[in-house]
């Protein structure tokens, strides 16, 4: 724009600015409306999709996982609220809610035996058995436990070696305890000597950590081994954990 001198010139410039601004506002508003409309359509389609595939979502774990990925990419969280249209449409909130209740149930039922620490894989297979028709994936368990976490009560998942363990009672598990659980995994038990040699610890440190695990109810002693060495067993890890527990549930 070529600049013209004088008052009228200044006024003209101000006028032009106003016009530009209102034009800009208009454009923005149109865009916003379009966006709203698109979002509305998207939401509508997603709802339609969800209700159309409701059965697949609740029955088929692979489909369910894909649906979750899709939602996550769009920035939608179908689990965020149980009140929203998702709950009404799908009962998908209910799906995880139910799963959560069953997880709590299993954690409580197995607690006398494992002290409140259970292998995620064991938990998953117990859940699957209990629900029979509907298969449950690790992903489902993690989502349901994630919901439980918000309720407090200490539900948490953590890794020990290659495995994931679910903790259902609040307890202090430090790095030392974690390392012991890890070396106990292959056989389900360790001796003091093994802890010392594998982790390069002093006798005192090994005993200390093991005694702590005993006190927490996560370990049991076995003095009947043929070699006379005390074995510390961990019901939450090791080969024996997932095999025979079904009879008790």
């Amino acid at each position: 724009m070529r600049r013209r001198p004088g008052i009228s010139g200044l006024q003209g410039a101000a006028q032009a600015r106003d016009q530009y601004r209102s034009l800009g506002d208009n454009v923005a508003k149109v865009r916003q409306d379009q966006m709203k409309e698109q979002l509305e359509t998207f939401r509508h389609q997603l709802e339609e999709f969800a209700s159309k595939h409701k059965n697949d979502i609740t029955k088929n774990p692979a489909f369910r996982a894909q649906f979750h990925t899709m939602c996550a990419k769009c920035g939608v969280d179908p689990l965020a609220s149980n009140k929203g249209f998702w709950a009404e449409l799908l009962g998908i909130g209910d799906f995880y809610y139910e799963l959560g209740v069953q997880i709590v149930d299993i954690c409580l039922a197995t607690r006398p035996r494992n002290g409140g620490l259970i292998d995620l894989e064991e938990l998953r297979s117990l859940l699957a058995k209990r629900r029979r028709a509907v298969s449950i994936t690790e992903d489902d368990c993690l989502r349901a436990i994630g919901k439980l976490k918000k309720l407090g009560g200490g539900y948490e998942v953590f890794s020990v070696g290659r495995r994931k363990l679910v903790r259902s009672v609040p307890m202090e598990l430090n790095r030392d305890h974690n390392l012991i659980l890890e070396i106990a995994q292959p056989r389900g038990y360790v001796t003091v000597e093994e802890v010392q040699s594998e982790l390069g610890w002093t006798h005192g440190r090994a005993i200390d950590a093991l005694e702590n695990l005993l006190k927490e109810g996560l370990a049991m002693v076995d003095d009947g081994a043929p070699n006379g060495k005390r074995h510390y067993w961990f019901p939450c890890v090791g080969p024996s954990s997932s095999v025979e527990s079904e009879a008790e549930l």
Partner: peptide, 9 residues
């Protein structure tokens, strides 16, 4: 029961 085969019991 399961625990019968679990040594620490």
């Amino acid at each position: 029961p399961y625990f019968y085969n679990y040594p620490p019991y």
